[in-house]
Design a binder for these strands. Structure first.
Lengths: 220, 220
DNA sequence: CCAAAAGTGTTAGTGATACACCCATGT
DNA sequence: ACATGGGTGTATCACTAACACTTTTGG
């Protein structure tokens, strides 16, 4: 570039969702440094020169949760002039869906603590992170309606009850069991697996997604 | 900020759509400078420190077309490391829908010419602009399906024929006149205006969007 | 009276919703 | 036997899609 203009900084922020304890959870970090020191925030960080936006998001995600097998989607880019008191910072937001198993939360340098919050009990957030979270939640619901993204919150093999629970938690309402099963089956995306009797009660039929469908979700 | 890291540059690119001559058109500019000198590209430019992303997009839009009354929506942020041979440039893409009346195309410093291209006759584009355009087109169609955004391509008062034409052009297929009218009317968004007999043949009923609906489209 | 676009209703099919009972298992 | 979640079918309603003729105007 011939001339050097003053440039904004660019960060990625990642709204990380999971579901456990019958609740939709978001990962927040407690800020260790100013501004907003001591306040909760959506995890994120500066984009390095040698990584794409998505790579930056994946790096942050892996640093925070240790998890790699996730659904990750770009949300929106927030660029108001005064959204960061330190100066001009543009943030490219992402949201991620991680399976609740095998997550290891780890704090990084800028952050003293990382914790899952129920979506119904979100504390006051730093920067414009409230707006970002609301946007993420809207997109999440929207996406669940017309895609199979929800399945990325479940293990390889799952039951109809599990996937219905996910939907009921995210949409905060009950669905009719029969209609739900009917619809899923009519989509022709399920492969029946062998039943395993592990816990108790009547053992449910387990399913997995057909191979080609799994690929669709990766791209989605 | 305590430390100064090397920062990427940030641009906005705007895919500007309109409809005339029974075709969906995109505005492209011919590049006056390297890289990709002489090639067609999506209009855009660097984000200034004192303007938000949306302001930057509006400024570019107004510089290119002289038009202010537009629908503008952020699309996606492209940040691959090598998308610009000059160095690290992250671009926040937008798309805009402008009414075909009263557009004044004007070339700027970096650009020798601005021209409308039919969506079916797009030349080879600079940078990753082909990808951006494809993304914009996908979003446009998607948006037309479940929102009233299409109306922002029409003047205040319009006929059912006009709006149906827009849909037929964008989706590249014919719709049944009766079903189309029925659906629109059932949405309860139309205000009937007085018929003006201007051209010839049987004069069509003109409509406008109800006031509260217009506001919805602004936000959409 | 001809050309051109506007206007208008009915039918069949498809997908969504509402609803209640029996089943398989572990304790 | 009972407690717990799993599994299944039918009837109604709403929405979508297919389809053709008459009307209004200008020339």
């Amino acid at each position: 570039m011939e001339k050097e203009f003053e440039k904004p900084s660019v960060t990625v922020d990642i709204v990380i969702f999971t579901v456990f304890e019958k609740e939709l959870k978001v990962l927040l970090v407690k800020r260790n440094i100013e501004p907003f020191k001591g306040m909760w925030a959506i995890p994120g960080g500066f984009v390095r020169m040698n990584e794409s936006l998505e790579d930056a998001a994946k790096r942050e995600l892996s640093e925070e949760t240790g998890v790699k097998d996730v659904y990750l989607e770009q949300l929106y880019t927030f660029g108001d002039i005064k959204r960061d008191p330190r100066g001009r910072v543009i943030t490219v937001s992402y949201y991620a869906l991680v399976k609740p198993e095998g997550i290891k939360l780890s704090a990084s340098t800028d952050v003293s603590e990382a914790k899952w919050f129920s979506i119904s009990k979100i504390p006051k957030l730093a920067f414009d992170h409230k707006k970002i979270l609301e946007y993420a939640l809207k997109r999440l619901k929207w996406k669940f309606e017309y895609s199979l993204t929800a399945f990325s919150l479940l293990p390889e093999k799952f039951t109809l009850g599990q996937i219905q629970n996910i939907y009921e938690i995210v949409f905060e309402k009950k669905f009719d069991k029969r209609n739900f099963a009917k619809k899923l089956k009519s989509l022709n995306i399920l492969k029946t697996e062998t039943i395993e009797k592990n816990v108790s009660f009547r053992p449910p039929q387990t399913y997995s997604l057909k191979k080609d469908i799994k690929e669709v979700i990766e791209i989605l």
